[in-house]
Design a protein around this nucleic acid. Structure first.
Lengths: 334, 334
DNA sequence: ATAATTCATGTAAGTGCTTTCACAAAAGCA
DNA sequence: TGCTTTTGTGAAAGCACTTACATGAATTAT
């Protein structure tokens, strides 16, 4: 009973013992065929589930909708957590999730140019990727419903956080804990595509310190690539200095954990000898007991997906820019 | 402007004064076309509201350019790491990655019934899901190329590890390190769908201990749900006992980290007072310095995707059952 | 200045299925 | 025995695209 592939007109012909021409005639000029053969052919058609246009059949079978997610390298845990949130709600609503990993700005542009015209997606979620007004325009004009995460645009739905405020929160928290000398650790490489919120967090941190009458001096700023091992090694140098800061805000959890390990390597007690505060709240942070500023990553994906589905259900809904809160999570390191 | 029928690639070509080949290139390899002509073509496309027919495209290409992945909960890190490996190679080969989160056996069946007929995928990767001969039959008969990860089937390609051997390796490693009393921590809940390799790892562990003349007594076996916090809490009870085992093999890294935290909570030195060895080598393991048995999760996804692509390129290739090795990774906890 | 190369583009040959065509064979009715 | 009517046959054309190869222009190297 299981046919190799979809039944074609040839299968129907064979099954009903006539030629393909006759089958075609049954479908197109029925009156040119005897009542009798027409009946046999029609039952064969029914039995095989033959649909003349393969295209129509494919559409019929694809009952579910399809949502695409454009994401930069899926290696970073923060994207995974966002994706996880989105996947959760999409799967609940029976949507397929198509992932496009964007590895260069060329790829990004290619996607943004062709995806909207291909009409193969019902909606699109874009994670942390920078793009132009033309692209926004193009998405809108082709009616591809879109939600941006982390990179806002006036004419499109977005989920955002306030990185500057996050930096300030970090400063306030550490100040209020009684620390008086501060350090910062963050990423250096500014990507050609994608987004770099680190600078904003740093700016906010500086601001927050200034408001409390402190400042961050240049030698207490550690710039290091977004990589655990690198931050561990460079962190070791940084922490070895006798005049090292007492409290360090790291713009990402990954780097914070690198620092934490460096501290452990040096036998420094955390937080009594150095306090470390991260940013993001990756799963990882909980696992190692890192105090951090939570940006609700899973939630951002969840909210993005929900917003998208809501707009698909009712396209007249107005554009929304949803701001997610940041929360200080106190664990063991600050 | 009256749309008699849908515009085709010919209409776009005529409207923008190029050949259909160029239009096709704009859509498929944009970089092969001058910025300038690309712009004219794109505006023509926009103006006419041209939508390329996916069906015709698939026909000409003899492929949809899409690979599906069936996975249980996207929440567990091990699946994410597998996915990451697969995503990496698929995106390199310009394939779209469609994710189907399978939350119940009903859903699994539904997918396995419709996906092969819908002809909307070139290939399928199935992660850690149990399925029947009928399903295998169905996939094969519809010519949907499939690779299984973690659940082997005679007639389909698969990527496997030897969980029993892994358990033995764990035992051997700990024995050779000089420990003489052993414990085990693992998952209890056997899912109705999905797979449960934990029992195998335990069996292997027992076997390995026996070979060295040791045994695992019942009160040194901790059964606890797959959850960090739960293993931490129950781990605390377990480790508090004065007759606790000196070396513990945890069947998953997540639970191992739970134990590790429990040990830290109790002020126990690791590994000098209690040694902990995990299994999986999640990213997490490196972050917390957990010694563990690496099962090359990323690699499994990568290999699965490569195998799939190889079979798509040359369907005459024989079925393969690839066994990935397990490696003991010594870090700081055992 | 000339040869060599790269490059954008067009031509035309595919792709798998369906429809149409001209014509022949068979069957049905005088 | 003829003359319709109904089928079968194989070939060809269409559909809406992709792509290998060819071409000629532009750019670079010599």
């Amino acid at each position: 009973m299981s046919n190799k592939t979809l039944p074609t007109i040839y299968d129907v012909a064979r099954a009903s013992g006539v030629s393909i021409a006759t089958v075609s005639r049954v479908l197109n000029d029925p009156h040119k065929v005897t009542e009798e053969t027409r009946a046999t052919v029609l039952t064969a058609i029914d039995r095989l589930g033959f649909v003349p246009k393969a295209e129509a059949r494919a559409r019929a079978l694809r009952s579910t909708g399809r949502i695409g997610v454009l994401t930069p390298f899926f290696t970073a845990q923060s994207f995974v957590q966002r994706l996880r949130g989105a996947a959760e709600v999409l799967s609940k609503h029976n949507y397929e999730l198509v992932i496009y990993t964007v590895s260069s700005s060329v790829r990004l542009n290619a996607y943004l140019e062709t995806l909207p015209i291909a009409h193969t997606l019902d909606g699109l979620i874009i994670l942390s990727l920078q793009f132009s007004d033309q692209h926004a325009e193009r998405l809108a004009s082709h009616g591809l419903e879109t939600v941006l995460v982390e990179y806002p645009h006036l004419t499109l739905n977005s989920i955002e956080i306030d990185d500057v405020a996050g930096g300030r929160q970090a400063a306030q928290y550490l100040v209020q804990k009684g620390y008086t000398s501060f350090g910062f650790a963050g990423d250096t490489t500014v990507p050609e595509f994608g987004i770099h919120p680190i600078t904003l967090r740093l700016a906010g941190f500086r601001q927050g310190l200034a408001e409390a009458g402190f400042e961050l001096c240049a030698e207490n700023t550690l710039l290091v690539p977004y990589d655990m091992e690198a931050s561990r090694l460079q962190g070791r140098q940084f922490l070895q200095r006798s005049d090292r800061p007492r409290a360090i805000f790291s713009a990402t959890d990954l780097q914070a954990v690198g620092l934490l390990r460096a501290a452990r390597d040096l036998g420094l007690k955390v937080p009594s000898e150095v306090a470390i505060l991260g940013f993001d709240d990756l799963d990882l942070a909980e696992h190692v007991g890192l105090s951090t500023i939570r940006q609700h990553l899973d939630e951002s994906g969840r909210v993005a997906a929900e917003l998208l589905l809501a707009r698909l259900a009712d396209p007249s809904r107005p554009i929304q820019h949803i701001h997610l809160p940041l929360t200080v999570i106190t664990r063991e390191t600050a």
